[in-house]
Amino acid sequence: MNTKTLSEKPNLLKIYILEAKTEFMRLIRTPGFSIPTLLFPIMFYTFFGIVFSMSPAMPTYLMVTYGVFGVIGPALFSFGVGIAVERGQGWFNLKEVSPMPASAYIFARVALTFIFSFVIICLLYFMAAVFADVQLYRSQWLLIALILIIGSLPFCAIGMYLGLSLKSSAAPATVNLIYLPLGFLSGLWLPITLFPEMMQSLANLLPPYHLAQVALKVIDMDVGDSIYLHLGVLAAYSIVFILLAMKAYYKKDKS
Protein backbone atom coordinates (compact mmCIF):
# COMPACT_ATOMS: atom_id res chain seq x y z
CA MET A 1 0.00 0.00 0.00
CA ASN A 2 1.40 3.30 -1.01
CA THR A 3 -0.45 6.03 0.78
CA LYS A 4 2.40 8.46 1.00
CA THR A 5 1.72 11.85 -0.47
CA LEU A 6 4.21 14.32 -1.80
CA SER A 7 4.86 16.85 0.87
CA GLU A 8 6.24 19.37 -1.56
CA LYS A 9 3.80 21.95 -2.74
CA PRO A 10 3.96 24.21 -5.76
CA ASN A 11 4.65 27.90 -5.29
CA LEU A 12 1.24 29.47 -4.75
CA LEU A 13 2.34 33.03 -5.46
CA LYS A 14 3.80 31.99 -8.79
CA ILE A 15 0.51 30.32 -9.75
CA TYR A 16 -1.43 33.47 -8.85
CA ILE A 17 0.83 35.68 -10.93
CA LEU A 18 0.92 33.36 -13.93
CA GLU A 19 -2.81 32.78 -13.83
CA ALA A 20 -3.51 36.52 -13.78
CA LYS A 21 -0.92 37.24 -16.43
CA THR A 22 -2.29 34.56 -18.77
CA GLU A 23 -5.81 35.88 -18.29
CA PHE A 24 -4.68 39.45 -18.87
CA MET A 25 -2.76 38.62 -22.05
CA ARG A 26 -5.76 36.76 -23.35
CA LEU A 27 -7.99 39.77 -22.80
CA ILE A 28 -5.79 42.37 -24.40
CA ARG A 29 -5.55 40.07 -27.41
CA THR A 30 -9.35 40.10 -27.60
CA PRO A 31 -10.03 43.79 -28.25
CA GLY A 32 -13.60 42.95 -29.23
CA PHE A 33 -14.28 42.39 -25.56
CA SER A 34 -12.01 44.89 -23.87
CA ILE A 35 -12.64 48.03 -25.95
CA PRO A 36 -16.47 48.14 -25.54
CA THR A 37 -16.16 47.38 -21.82
CA LEU A 38 -13.77 50.30 -21.46
CA LEU A 39 -15.57 52.74 -23.73
CA PHE A 40 -19.27 52.28 -22.90
CA PRO A 41 -19.20 54.08 -19.55
CA ILE A 42 -17.04 56.87 -20.97
CA MET A 43 -19.37 57.33 -23.91
CA PHE A 44 -22.48 57.42 -21.74
CA TYR A 45 -20.83 59.83 -19.34
CA THR A 46 -19.86 62.11 -22.18
CA PHE A 47 -23.47 62.25 -23.42
CA PHE A 48 -25.40 62.49 -20.19
CA GLY A 49 -22.82 64.01 -17.90
CA ILE A 50 -21.11 66.52 -20.15
CA VAL A 51 -23.02 67.24 -23.36
CA PHE A 52 -26.56 67.12 -21.90
CA SER A 53 -25.66 68.25 -18.42
CA MET A 54 -28.65 69.90 -16.75
CA SER A 55 -26.97 71.54 -13.78
CA PRO A 56 -23.47 72.52 -12.67
CA ALA A 57 -23.34 69.64 -10.20
CA MET A 58 -24.33 67.06 -12.77
CA PRO A 59 -20.91 66.32 -14.29
CA THR A 60 -19.46 65.62 -10.84
CA TYR A 61 -22.39 63.53 -9.69
CA LEU A 62 -22.55 61.46 -12.86
CA MET A 63 -18.79 60.98 -12.93
CA VAL A 64 -19.21 58.97 -9.73
CA THR A 65 -22.27 57.02 -10.84
CA TYR A 66 -20.81 56.21 -14.26
CA GLY A 67 -17.73 55.13 -12.35
CA VAL A 68 -19.94 52.59 -10.58
CA PHE A 69 -21.47 51.60 -13.90
CA GLY A 70 -17.95 51.26 -15.29
CA VAL A 71 -16.59 48.97 -12.59
CA ILE A 72 -19.54 46.60 -12.36
CA GLY A 73 -19.30 45.89 -16.11
CA PRO A 74 -15.94 44.09 -16.08
CA ALA A 75 -16.89 42.29 -12.86
CA LEU A 76 -20.11 40.91 -14.28
CA PHE A 77 -18.66 40.14 -17.71
CA SER A 78 -15.26 38.75 -16.75
CA PHE A 79 -16.84 36.41 -14.21
CA GLY A 80 -20.31 35.90 -15.63
CA VAL A 81 -19.56 35.48 -19.30
CA GLY A 82 -15.92 34.38 -18.92
CA ILE A 83 -16.64 31.42 -16.67
CA ALA A 84 -19.78 30.39 -18.56
CA VAL A 85 -17.86 30.30 -21.85
CA GLU A 86 -15.00 28.27 -20.35
CA ARG A 87 -17.50 25.86 -18.89
CA GLY A 88 -19.21 25.56 -22.25
CA GLN A 89 -16.02 24.65 -24.08
CA GLY A 90 -14.92 22.16 -21.42
CA TRP A 91 -11.84 24.18 -20.46
CA PHE A 92 -13.21 24.94 -17.01
CA ASN A 93 -13.66 21.20 -16.41
CA LEU A 94 -10.05 20.55 -17.30
CA LYS A 95 -8.89 23.26 -14.90
CA GLU A 96 -11.13 21.77 -12.26
CA VAL A 97 -9.48 18.35 -12.46
CA SER A 98 -6.04 19.93 -12.69
CA PRO A 99 -4.31 20.88 -9.44
CA MET A 100 -5.04 24.56 -10.00
CA PRO A 101 -6.10 26.06 -6.67
CA ALA A 102 -9.60 27.50 -7.09
CA SER A 103 -8.36 30.62 -5.31
CA ALA A 104 -5.89 31.29 -8.14
CA TYR A 105 -8.68 31.28 -10.68
CA ILE A 106 -10.69 33.76 -8.63
CA PHE A 107 -7.63 35.88 -7.88
CA ALA A 108 -6.81 36.17 -11.59
CA ARG A 109 -10.28 37.36 -12.49
CA VAL A 110 -10.50 39.78 -9.57
CA ALA A 111 -7.10 41.22 -10.51
CA LEU A 112 -8.32 41.67 -14.05
CA THR A 113 -11.51 43.35 -12.91
CA PHE A 114 -9.43 45.75 -10.79
CA ILE A 115 -7.17 46.60 -13.71
CA PHE A 116 -10.14 47.27 -15.96
CA SER A 117 -11.82 49.31 -13.25
CA PHE A 118 -8.69 51.37 -12.79
CA VAL A 119 -8.43 52.17 -16.50
CA ILE A 120 -12.14 53.09 -16.73
CA ILE A 121 -11.85 55.40 -13.72
CA CYS A 122 -8.79 57.10 -15.18
CA LEU A 123 -10.60 57.71 -18.46
CA LEU A 124 -13.67 59.05 -16.66
CA TYR A 125 -11.58 61.33 -14.48
CA PHE A 126 -9.80 62.61 -17.55
CA MET A 127 -13.04 63.45 -19.35
CA ALA A 128 -14.55 65.00 -16.23
CA ALA A 129 -11.56 67.14 -15.35
CA VAL A 130 -10.70 68.28 -18.85
CA PHE A 131 -14.09 68.68 -20.55
CA ALA A 132 -16.47 69.34 -17.66
CA ASP A 133 -14.10 71.17 -15.35
CA VAL A 134 -14.89 68.88 -12.42
CA GLN A 135 -12.80 69.97 -9.44
CA LEU A 136 -12.25 67.86 -6.32
CA TYR A 137 -9.64 67.65 -3.60
CA ARG A 138 -6.90 65.16 -4.35
CA SER A 139 -8.04 63.03 -1.40
CA GLN A 140 -11.55 62.91 -2.87
CA TRP A 141 -10.35 61.74 -6.28
CA LEU A 142 -8.33 59.02 -4.60
CA LEU A 143 -10.96 57.92 -2.13
CA ILE A 144 -13.67 57.68 -4.80
CA ALA A 145 -11.37 55.63 -7.03
CA LEU A 146 -10.56 53.31 -4.14
CA ILE A 147 -14.23 52.85 -3.20
CA LEU A 148 -15.14 52.07 -6.80
CA ILE A 149 -12.36 49.55 -7.30
CA ILE A 150 -12.99 47.70 -4.05
CA GLY A 151 -16.70 48.13 -4.64
CA SER A 152 -16.53 45.89 -7.71
CA LEU A 153 -16.09 42.88 -5.43
CA PRO A 154 -19.79 42.20 -4.70
CA PHE A 155 -20.34 42.24 -8.46
CA CYS A 156 -17.53 39.75 -8.93
CA ALA A 157 -19.48 37.47 -6.59
CA ILE A 158 -22.69 37.99 -8.54
CA GLY A 159 -20.80 37.39 -11.80
CA MET A 160 -19.23 34.23 -10.42
CA TYR A 161 -22.61 32.81 -9.56
CA LEU A 162 -23.95 33.70 -13.01
CA GLY A 163 -20.90 32.22 -14.72
CA LEU A 164 -21.24 28.96 -12.82
CA SER A 165 -24.95 28.58 -13.49
CA LEU A 166 -25.66 30.07 -16.93
CA LYS A 167 -25.31 28.15 -20.17
CA SER A 168 -22.48 29.56 -22.24
CA SER A 169 -24.76 30.40 -25.15
CA ALA A 170 -27.16 32.33 -22.92
CA ALA A 171 -24.57 34.08 -20.77
CA PRO A 172 -23.72 37.21 -22.82
CA ALA A 173 -27.37 38.13 -23.39
CA THR A 174 -28.40 37.34 -19.83
CA VAL A 175 -25.55 39.33 -18.30
CA ASN A 176 -26.43 42.30 -20.51
CA LEU A 177 -30.06 41.97 -19.48
CA ILE A 178 -28.96 42.22 -15.87
CA TYR A 179 -26.22 44.82 -16.31
CA LEU A 180 -28.05 47.51 -18.27
CA PRO A 181 -31.38 47.64 -16.36
CA LEU A 182 -29.50 47.27 -13.08
CA GLY A 183 -27.44 50.33 -13.96
CA PHE A 184 -30.43 52.40 -14.98
CA LEU A 185 -32.69 51.40 -12.07
CA SER A 186 -29.91 52.05 -9.57
CA GLY A 187 -29.69 55.62 -10.77
CA LEU A 188 -26.31 55.31 -12.41
CA TRP A 189 -27.36 56.83 -15.73
CA LEU A 190 -29.45 59.68 -14.36
CA PRO A 191 -29.47 60.97 -10.78
CA ILE A 192 -31.74 58.91 -8.55
CA THR A 193 -33.45 62.07 -7.27
CA LEU A 194 -34.98 62.61 -10.71
CA PHE A 195 -36.83 59.28 -10.39
CA PRO A 196 -40.44 58.88 -9.21
CA GLU A 197 -40.61 57.95 -5.54
CA MET A 198 -41.56 54.33 -6.18
CA MET A 199 -38.48 53.81 -8.32
CA GLN A 200 -36.33 55.45 -5.70
CA SER A 201 -37.46 52.90 -3.13
CA LEU A 202 -36.92 50.08 -5.62
CA ALA A 203 -33.33 51.27 -6.06
CA ASN A 204 -32.80 50.58 -2.36
CA LEU A 205 -32.88 46.87 -3.18
CA LEU A 206 -30.15 47.09 -5.79
CA PRO A 207 -26.47 46.85 -4.90
CA PRO A 208 -25.15 49.39 -7.49
CA TYR A 209 -27.34 52.04 -5.87
CA HIS A 210 -25.66 51.43 -2.54
CA LEU A 211 -22.16 51.46 -3.99
CA ALA A 212 -22.97 54.78 -5.69
CA GLN A 213 -24.23 56.19 -2.39
CA VAL A 214 -21.03 55.22 -0.60
CA ALA A 215 -18.93 56.93 -3.28
CA LEU A 216 -21.21 59.98 -3.42
CA LYS A 217 -20.79 60.43 0.34
CA VAL A 218 -17.19 61.48 -0.34
CA ILE A 219 -18.46 64.60 -2.13
CA ASP A 220 -21.61 65.04 0.01
CA MET A 221 -23.95 64.28 -2.86
CA ASP A 222 -25.60 61.17 -1.41
CA VAL A 223 -29.22 61.04 -0.24
CA GLY A 224 -28.13 61.03 3.40
CA ASP A 225 -28.71 57.46 4.56
CA SER A 226 -26.29 55.81 6.95
CA ILE A 227 -23.13 54.40 5.41
CA TYR A 228 -23.69 51.23 7.42
CA LEU A 229 -26.93 50.61 5.58
CA HIS A 230 -25.12 50.83 2.24
CA LEU A 231 -22.18 48.70 3.33
CA GLY A 232 -24.57 46.23 4.97
CA VAL A 233 -26.55 45.72 1.76
CA LEU A 234 -23.35 45.32 -0.29
CA ALA A 235 -21.97 42.79 2.22
CA ALA A 236 -25.24 40.87 2.27
CA TYR A 237 -25.29 40.62 -1.53
CA SER A 238 -21.67 39.46 -1.52
CA ILE A 239 -22.27 36.74 1.04
CA VAL A 240 -25.43 35.44 -0.60
CA PHE A 241 -23.84 35.23 -4.04
CA ILE A 242 -20.61 33.70 -2.75
CA LEU A 243 -22.69 30.99 -1.09
CA LEU A 244 -24.74 30.48 -4.24
CA ALA A 245 -21.55 30.32 -6.33
CA MET A 246 -20.01 27.77 -3.96
CA LYS A 247 -23.13 25.69 -4.14
CA ALA A 248 -22.99 25.76 -7.93
CA TYR A 249 -19.26 24.96 -7.92
CA TYR A 250 -19.44 22.05 -5.52
CA LYS A 251 -22.49 20.58 -7.18
CA LYS A 252 -21.39 17.17 -8.36
CA ASP A 253 -22.43 15.45 -11.54
CA LYS A 254 -21.86 18.45 -13.69
CA SER A 255 -22.04 17.52 -17.29
Binding site: L6, K9, P10, R29, Q89, G90, W91, S98, P99
Partner: peptide, 15 residues
Amino acid sequence: RQCGAMLQLSGLPDM
Protein backbone atom coordinates in the same frame (compact mmCIF):
# COMPACT_ATOMS: atom_id res chain seq x y z
CA ARG B 1 -1.18 17.22 -7.62
CA GLN B 2 -0.17 13.62 -8.31
CA CYS B 3 -2.40 13.16 -11.32
CA GLY B 4 -2.76 14.43 -14.84
CA ALA B 5 -5.87 14.18 -16.94
CA MET B 6 -6.99 14.48 -20.50
CA LEU B 7 -10.74 14.76 -20.79
CA GLN B 8 -13.03 14.36 -23.74
CA LEU B 9 -14.14 17.63 -25.24
CA SER B 10 -11.79 20.23 -23.90
CA GLY B 11 -11.77 23.44 -25.85
CA LEU B 12 -8.84 25.73 -25.26
CA PRO B 13 -9.06 29.47 -24.75
CA ASP B 14 -8.24 30.90 -28.16
CA MET B 15 -5.80 33.63 -27.37
